[in-house]
Design a protein around this nucleic acid. Structure first.
Length: 153
DNA sequence: GCCAACGTTGGC
DNA sequence: GCCAACGTTGGC
């Protein structure tokens, strides 16, 4: 089983929204590196939910991957901000996953705390200028994150 | 709101 | 295939 980190702006979709919905199709990713990580996810993988572009940014909870290799329907929807007219319907360009709600951590693990704990090599989200919205998290790093989440840092 | 980082686009 | 221009992300 692998671990991942997935970003969302809470104004757009937050962990509270996911708790309410329980499952959600993770649409709108339009970056090939992130897409490739999405398509390499497996059922039962776990993903840390990261709130970006908010105060403070950080990891707020955990999700599980409940469906893999799902065609992102927004690429074919002209009304969607994620519409991609160049995506061939017979061979959709953008695939993603369905995530399930796991848990909300008692306290957010802030980006400041992540920077103080991990190197940019260990946790890509602390890399300067990092814009990738889906990234792998190594097992050992994931275990440390879970320990931080469950013992209040 | 600013702006650095950086991926994408398109002219050549 | 290069690279300048442009748009977006996301921390601050």
């Amino acid at each position: 089983m692998a671990y991942w980190l997935m970003k969302s702006e809470p104004d757009v979709y937050s962990i509270d929204d996911l708790q309410r919905d329980q499952t959600e199709l993770w649409d709108g990713v339009r970056n090939y590196q992130a897409r490739n990580f999405l398509t390499s996810m497996a059922l039962g993988d776990l993903a840390f939910f990261y709130h970006s572009n908010t105060k403070p940014p950080g990891i707020v909870g955990l999700m599980k991957i409940v469906e893999t290799n799902v065609v992102d329907p927004t690429q074919f929807d002209p009304a969607s901000p994620y519409y991609d007219p160049k995506s061939p319907p017979e061979q959709p360009r953008w695939r993603t996953v369905v995530v399930g709600y796991g848990e909300t951590f008692d306290t957010i693990i802030t980006l400041d705390q992540l920077k103080a704990t991990f190197t940019p090599e260990d946790l890509w989200v602390v890399r300067r200028g990092n814009r990738l919205s889906v990234m792998p998290v190594a097992e050992a790093v994931a275990q440390r994150l879970l320990a931080m989440a469950h013992q209040g840092h």
